[in-house]
Nucleic acid binder design. Structure first.
Lengths: 308, 308
DNA sequence: GCATGATCATCAGAATAGCTGATCACTATG
DNA sequence: CATAGTGATCAGCTATTCTGATGATCATGC
């Protein structure tokens, strides 16, 4: 060994030093470590060679070697160094089990409202020490971009096109429904054509969600004409409640517990939007992220099928 | 490797991980480390085996491997772990050069007054980062005990007997002088017999220093009779100044700049006390302690011979 | 389309490092 | 003076680790 640097020193050598400190003699340290006295002697010798200083005074008799002042200092460093390795080991163990880690998930309004609380609840039960951070925006393209740039681990999205750069999990389908003021007797179904008999309330045209709805309606043969537009989902619903008009909304975005609102199904239905979870392809997920994914799929199945 | 623990992981493997992070590809990392690409590949592979998790995603083409989320976490740990080893290395380097370390030196009043400031000044000039802590007591036996029990690295002492358990360096001889009120014309010399013509001022009989003086005086044929006793050297000198009597004191303990005090030499002189530096035998000194020792010997030679 | 060049993995063999087991030297203790 | 316990040392075996060559894969450029 030309270069006497601890950079090339086996942790075992440090462990030997600590063991000698803890057990008093080379022989007992060796026994504790499962080595022979010879091995420990050589380990310490190499450590001293690497350090370039004597770490022990050897009394040359039947008395144990004792640490020099330098040796005591090195001993403390060795303890701390090994402690750090052990910490890393423990952290890694948590990581392997998916019980730790910082997870960043991209999401948007309607996913956040219904899907996420259920998923996060299950995560808390299952892997309580995972720190899930949310990155919420309604710009789905931005989410996609962040996934591709590894800025976020996972993202919810809607109707994502096949793309070799990402892998897509389908969580379920979110049907489009019509919101109308509650009436008696309540209707169950409306047709697309019925929509043009009432003023329509929607979101601004730059909203990703609204564009999706307009595409669907155009595809179904009508060109919607919005009397009022509000950015917030709840505001739209509120307007419907006060009788200003009807609204077409994805089911997940609707507050189904509102007694003043009738949720009507379209017949024939619009093609429902696909709620998906995307991740960058070819990337190994953090174990915690893999947990999130399987939980999301399970929750999505329950939530979205029940409402289909 | 049955036990996948990082405890058995060479720092080089961690260094490889960091190098890959810093240089982008296995091959460049290998070059930076002075290894072949094959070696780095195997190091990383073993690291992944030990960690039990994938640390890299391999895109299987001409594009470099990229860290997984887990890999990034492990990378940070590796950096910190290596930083610690490097810190230890740097510390050790300072230690080797005697430029660092915590030194505890036992000392007593008269050594502290004159000798120590000079030694500590030289230490500061020579090895500025050594932390010299002082353990001051006037119980020389206590100092000896602390040396034997490795509680202190070095200790000043006086007239220590040969003892196989300690090694003694003679710093110099400190003559005994007589303090008298300044008179004109000032006398230069007094005899031991003259002492009994004046009231004597001394320290309490339990003081190690006082016992030494009494031994010397008894050996010289007189039995001193103290009119007043004060524990503090300065107090004794103050009493002499105000004309209460004479005092026999070791030269090192005297404030020679006091204009109201005449420092008289004994003729024939009492056998001077030997100022020594002791350390436990068979123990390797901290390099900084070795420096302290050689500086102390040099300073002692200068200071004590000049006053002999 | 096909060659080129870059990626990392893999394998066999050589070099190195590490451990064992036996032995030696030393000395405090009884 | 024999005993017992200390660590050092040495030779030889084993395990690890590096090298050097090769393989597999695929993006890029001609």
């Amino acid at each position: 060994m030309i270069m006497p640097s601890l950079r090339d020193t086996d942790p075992r050598h440090l462990a030997a030093l600590v063991a000698v400190a803890d057990h008093g003699t080379f022989a007992r340290a060796a026994q504790a470590l499962g080595f022979t006295q010879s091995a420990v002697s050589q380990q310490i010798a190499q450590l001293e060679r690497a350090a370039g200083v004597a770490l022990f005074d050897r009394p040359k008799g039947p008395r144990p070697a004792e640490f020099t002042s330098t040796g005591q200092i090195v001993l403390e460093w060795a303890r701390r160094s090994l402690a750090r390795v052990d910490q890393m080991d423990a952290q890694l163990d948590l990581l392997r089990r998916g019980r730790s880690g910082q997870l960043i998930v991209g999401t948007f309004q309607s996913a956040s409202a219904e899907l996420l609380p259920n998923i996060l609840g299950a995560m808390r039960d299952h892997v309580p020490d995972v720190d899930v951070q949310l990155d919420e925006t309604d710009d789905l393209d931005a989410l996609m971009r962040e996934v591709l740039q590894d800025e976020i681990d996972l993202a919810f999205t809607i109707d994502a096109d096949d793309d070799p750069r990402i892998e897509i999990d389908l969580l379920g389908y979110d049907p489009f429904v019509v919101l109308a003021p509650a009436e008696r007797p309540a209707r169950q179904f409306v047709t697309v054509a019925d929509l043009n008999t009432r003023p329509l309330i929607g979101q601004p045209g730059d909203e990703t969600g609204q564009r999706l709805i307009d595409q669907r309606l155009t595809g179904a043969g009508i060109s919607p004409d919005y009397a009022y537009r509000f950015r917030n989902n709840a505001a739209v619903q509120s307007m419907v409640r006060s009788g200003m008009g009807w609204a077409v909304m994805p089911s997940l975005a609707v507050d189904h517990d509102d007694p003043d609102i009738a949720v009507l199904r379209l017949d024939p239905p619009l093609h429902p939007r696909a709620i998906q979870l995307i991740r960058r392809s070819g990337r190994t997920l953090l174990p915690a992220a893999a947990d999130f994914r399987s939980i999301a799929k399970k929750v999505g199945r329950g939530l979205l099928e029940a409402r289909a």
